[in-house]
Design a protein around this nucleic acid. Sequence first.
DNA 1: CAACTCATGTGAAGGGTCTTTACATCATGC
DNA 2: GCATGATGTAAAGACCCTTCACATGAGTTG
Lengths: 211, 211
Amino acid sequence: MSWGRDEPRGYHHGNLREALIHAALELIAQKGAAGFTFADAARFAGVSPAAPYRHFRDRDELMAIVALRGFEQFEAALARAWDDGRPDPFAALDRLGKAYLEFARAQPAFYSAMFEAGVPVGADPALRSAGERAFAVLRGAADKICAAMPPAGRPPALMVALHIWAMAHGTASLFGRGDGARRALPMSPAELLEAQVLVYLRGLGVKTPQR
Amino acid sequence: MSWGRDEPRGYHHGNLREALIHAALELIAQKGAAGFTFADAARFAGVSPAAPYRHFRDRDELMAIVALRGFEQFEAALARAWDDGRPDPFAALDRLGKAYLEFARAQPAFYSAMFEAGVPVGADPALRSAGERAFAVLRGAADKICAAMPPAGRPPALMVALHIWAMAHGTASLFGRGDGARRALPMSPAELLEAQVLVYLRGLGVKTPQR
DNA sequence: CAACTCATGTGAAGGGTCTTTACATCATGC
DNA sequence: GCATGATGTAAAGACCCTTCACATGAGTTG
């Protein structure tokens, strides 16, 4: 793949829109969401600083597109991990948590754009709905977890989904980012989250299969 | 209080350092951590764009100072809420969670600088230690919670502290920020966190006094 | 009290980014 | 072929970042 300015090209780039998105990912990963500049992306793609404006209203719109792509990939990664709750919802939930952390670790550019760059997720309908779809995976998992409980005293699945989201997100944000400089932990983020979710499930009264 | 450029002043400002910190807080709260500029802060304080360089190496250092102040205020707010676990550790823990959320809601500028602006907390020793002191409040709370459990099967207090931190931080980051545009919830962030912590504590096997 | 010194603030300047505008190039369809 | 619209360029104004030489005046010292 070649998104940079390796080969010479004619007056027209041919695929500038995609090239700019990839440039943004590369640059955000390198220098953080704040350090990334529109002109940088143009330079990276080998075009003039004005060219990006043919494809995005401004830097913020490019950032929002990156966040949108991020939510789509995030949803795909979570859905792949959840795999419809196979072989059982608890093993699948464990994979789901690990996938959440893995995404935050391996895709810092997407994660920043989605959660830290101040992109107004609620404003853009497309972005909002992409976020909803990603959350829907968690929601589906919570449904199956709740369905495994006796109907009496069964908690609202939405609440359980929000709780799982908060645990995964908190763990990822505090301990699971690439920098690692944040804190020396006695255990890995994945172990920490797994233990946390297990305690939480026990608190819900769920019988998790012991291993 | 007057940190703006209300009254005229002589050649020297008299308290520029503090004025710039307050300007930064004001501007970050208004326009976000990314939108805040060094020149803006100077204008806000009524001095030339070069003046801030007499007090801070660059924009990043000012941001780090804001984060430092934030951690100090955060620690104070958490300690006040925890109040050494009075009247009982569970009521105090509930206050602690609410204080965490309240800080994120009422002090978005501090919160952004501390957790979202990409300030390298691990790098600066003063910043790192301020963060540690804030966390120490959670750690102390976890100690008392664990002490209320039967010694057999008592979990590591550090792990419990990290779990509580992750829950509070995840809830605050996802649902508790000022914008509110993020998601319509069936319950308030405070209720959500309280329920989550209660479930978690039950999972630990703690007997929380019923109300 | 006068002179000195140093912290603090200014103005100007170079270099970078953001964004718009008029213009250049080329792909596409008729 | 040729018109047309999409895409890229160059240039320009406004703003920010940062440094430098210089100005000011507060505190110290004899």
